[in-house]
Design a binder for these strands. Structure first.
Lengths: 304, 304
DNA sequence: CCAAGTTACGAGTCACGTAAGGATT
DNA sequence: AATCCTTACGTGACTCGTAACTTGG
């Protein structure tokens, strides 16, 4: 027997076709996707047709190009799938590559402070080391770590004390706790509760909140943690800058939950510790287990 | 330009090659893997060679066949990757398939009890419905749900109250809480602490435990939750039968953590509630968002 | 009728199987 | 010598590009 043709029976779906399908769905155009991928539009058309034949379902409506129900479903799978495929390659490649003197650290905004002493130690040890610190949103952070675009990621989140962070899994990454701090609600200066020593989150379900999923504790997290509905967003904040968020809270646009001693800039707002539920703001260092050289030393310094 | 050959630059790794590589690594033999896959042994040899060339690293030592460091790393990626690939296909296929009257429910041992009234409702509604209940370990459960081998999964775990379970993500599954109960430590009848009204987990770090990762709360989970070392396993229990585990505890072979009113069979052991850390035993229903027909009704009944 | 997607067709490449070649026990 | 993996080679299949065709706004 030769060839065998249908890849379908044994393997899941062909990632090559999947990649093209994703591009078409994103650009809502076969021609644009073809340009992006470096194919002719004909080839992309054939690829999508092949994928549809393989799966036995129409994935895209044409003119205008729109995902069908099945197509939308496949898209949900496709993005993390392609990410993991890249991650696998990057991870093996790193084992073969020579250890580099360059270090890239990725960190979500509230995790940057955790770098402090560990980074100092490593830079003392390697004086001519160039360290790049890149501030990223939560989802981007894991993607970058998985594909080896950053060596060490510092992720943060609100969890029960000494619990680990619920990270989207983009491969077998190592995650170890670096720092845990109490949580606090940021209130504008003349807020009625600003004088309190501690607050229960459930009491603030009806307040107006700022949804800053990449910077503060996401509102969805508050809902599941408090086991309550509410926590409606009045403003959505898409930056990754804590100062900007603090300013918005100070101006009375809504509340936000952050780690308690926010460090430097607390001008214009009041931070009141959260007493219930019992959560902490936790920072974890995330990196590939195959990390070596200076990046590995930094990871060790962070966690030790 | 024609052909283009190297799939490598654009896509991650070729799943077809990956599948063969995994088979070879598992069987520790090219020939055995070839038989399993329905290829000639020559083909498998070429496939592994192609994968190694593509990744620029030797993945397997030959004679005897053993994964290299890079190979072991790739294996860590490969298994979940191939699972997700299958999951994507299964998920789209389900959309095209006609709704079936057959329902398969998967459940981890401690989650079965959560089926009770919801299942009764659905069976009353559909009298001639055949429901299959399959008891599975935690990891198998998610795999089966993702590949549509079971329609609805009931997973369990120990988490902070109203937190969601940390499930390995095998695709975009929907998970909703069904049940939360207090946790308890199972003690043999004449254990010195058997009379206590409540126990702190940290006080039992030095005790002898039974590691029953598929049945009780895994010991690793206890360590991270209590933020302490210890919880050494004296016995490892690989079954999925709660009764057997209870018997072992009763015979003094070690302790285990389970939901508090374990239901029926508590003969021969004492259950003492865990007061610290504040965790609950939570059951979640897990299923594909594309679920339809009777399985969807069951899922709704479970969560409503 | 024009933009956008599909279909027809041919060329280059690939992935098998068969068969011969090495190496290790 | 037997087993197991690798290499050589040939063939059928596949995937792409070019180009003609179709269709919807």
């Amino acid at each position: 027997m030769i060839g065998l043709g249908a890849i379908s029976d044994t393997d899941g779906v062909d990632p090559h076709l999947l990649r093209s399908f994703v591009a078409v769905a994103r650009r809502r155009s076969f021609s644009a996707a073809a340009r992006e991928l470096g194919f002719t539009q004909s080839a992309v058309s054939q690829q999508v047709a092949a994928l549809e034949a393989d799966l036995g379902a129409v994935l895209l409506n044409r003119r205008p190009v729109t995902p069908t129900r099945a197509g939308a479903r496949l898209l949900d799978h496709a993005v993390p799938l392609l990410l993991r495929l890249d991650a696998a390659r990057a991870d093996v490649a790193r084992l073969a590559a020579p250890p580099s003197a360059r270090v890239v650290v990725g960190a979500s905004p509230l995790a940057v402070t955790a770098l402090g002493p560990a980074l100092a130690d490593v830079r003392r040890e390697h004086p001519d080391l160039v360290v790049t610190v890149r501030v990223l949103g939560r989802s981007a952070l894991i993607r970058e770590v998985a594909t080896a675009a950053v060596d060490v990621g510092l992720a943060d989140g609100a969890v029960a004390p000494s619990d680990s962070l619920p990270l989207p899994d983009a491969g077998p990454l190592r995650a170890v706790g670096v720092l845990e701090r109490p949580l606090a609600v940021l209130l504008p200066p003349r807020h009625p509760l600003a004088g309190r020593a501690g607050l229960r989150l459930a009491d603030l379900a009806a307040a107006g909140w700022i949804d800053a999923p990449d910077t503060a504790v996401p509102l969805g997290r508050l809902r599941t943690a408090a086991g309550a509905e509410g926590y409606r967003a009045s403003v959505r904040y898409e930056g990754t800058d804590v100062g900007g968020l603090v300013a918005l809270v100070g101006a009375g646009h809504g509340l936000a939950v952050l780690p308690d001693p926010t460090g430097a800039a607390l001008s214009g707002v009041t931070a009141v510790p959260v007493t219930e539920p019992r959560l902490v703001h936790r920072v974890e260092a995330v990196h590939s287990p195959t990390l070596a050289g200076v990046p590995a030393a930094l990871a060790a310094a962070l966690t030790g």
